[in-house]
């Protein structure tokens, strides 16, 4: 589904990604771990097409298509979803209105009519129940005055609504208490399927107790320095990142 080859990216002339290789197939869950500032969020942004970041080398392929010339919204229409580490506020725009716009814009891009209001309401009801979201919450302005946990839960709600093929969750676990974490993880697990894939970015292995990854990658200084199965996460928990940093510099 996703093929990243030798990806280099920089921002304001500063090199951040320095040759990332990653292949994610349908049905898989990949965890990406690594210390702060190693380039995890940058990788997520570059996959999503944020123009601030310049791809200087390498390529990203999604479902066999090179994404180089593809705008962020087109990537979204193709089924790429990013749950932001720091979701932004949009005052005066309700969660419901935002979702309605997002869904209908994607439909428009595919040549479909707007989703009928009845269907939209049904979808909203279904997904908000699944994630244990109070309906009142959905009429509030997007992320405005939301607690950290509410913001993250709202991101997952949007993911559930949009049903993307590839979901990238950037530190969705941080800021969540254990109950919220369980609900969110439960939601993600329910959305797992053979034709979808997930990339979990985290630096704790806590989340991985709830969402079991097929692969774990460790990123350090803009490169994936180690990949393995789910046991790698436990090893990291035990030993920290330092041994990998040393390994990488050797």
């Amino acid at each position: 589904m996703l093929k990243i080859k030798n990806l280099h990216a920089s921002v304001e002339g500063k090199k951040i990604l320095k040759g990332v290789n990653l292949e994610v197939n349908a049905g898989e869950v990949h965890a990406i771990m690594g210390p702060n500032g190693s380039g995890k969020s940058t990788l997520a942004s570059v996959i999503a097409g944020k123009e601030e970041f310049e791809v200087t080398q390498g390529s990203i392929e999604f479902e066999g298509e090179d994404l180089d010339e593809t705008s962020p919204e087109e990537r979204a229409h193709k089924g790429v979803f990013l749950s932001f580490q720091y979701p932004v506020e949009i005052p005066g725009v309700s969660v419901t209105n935002f979702m309605k716009t997002a869904i209908n814009e994607s439909r428009k891009a595919k040549g479909l009519e707007d989703m009928p209001a009845k269907e939209m309401l049904k979808l909203i009801r279904e997904k908000s129940e699944m994630l244990d979201i109070d309906r009142k919450f959905l009429s509030r302005s997007l992320n405005e005055g939301f607690s950290g946990g509410e913001k993250k839960r709202n991101e997952i709600f949007q993911m559930a609504m949009l049903e993307p093929k590839l979901s990238i969750l950037d530190e969705t676990d941080s800021g969540l208490d254990i109950d919220a974490l369980r609900i969110v993880a439960n939601g993600v697990n329910k959305l797992r399927s053979a034709d979808k894939a997930t990339i979990l970015i985290t630096h704790y292995q806590r989340l991985l107790e709830y969402i079991i990854p097929d692969f774990v990658h460790v990123i350090h200084d803009g490169k994936i320095v180690k990949s393995g199965g789910k046991e790698l996460a436990l090893e990291l928990e035990e030993k920290g990142y330092d041994w990998l940093k040393q390994e990488a510099t050797v």
């Binding site: 097409g49 979204a76 935002f98």
Partner: peptide, 28 residues
Amino acid sequence: GEDQIFYCNQRGIDTEKAIALIVNGFSK
């Protein structure tokens, strides 16, 4: 902000529409 626009873009909303959405929210 560019971040607001990118957030909308990422949800499949193009920049023109994103601005309209943000402005409408502001003017609500």
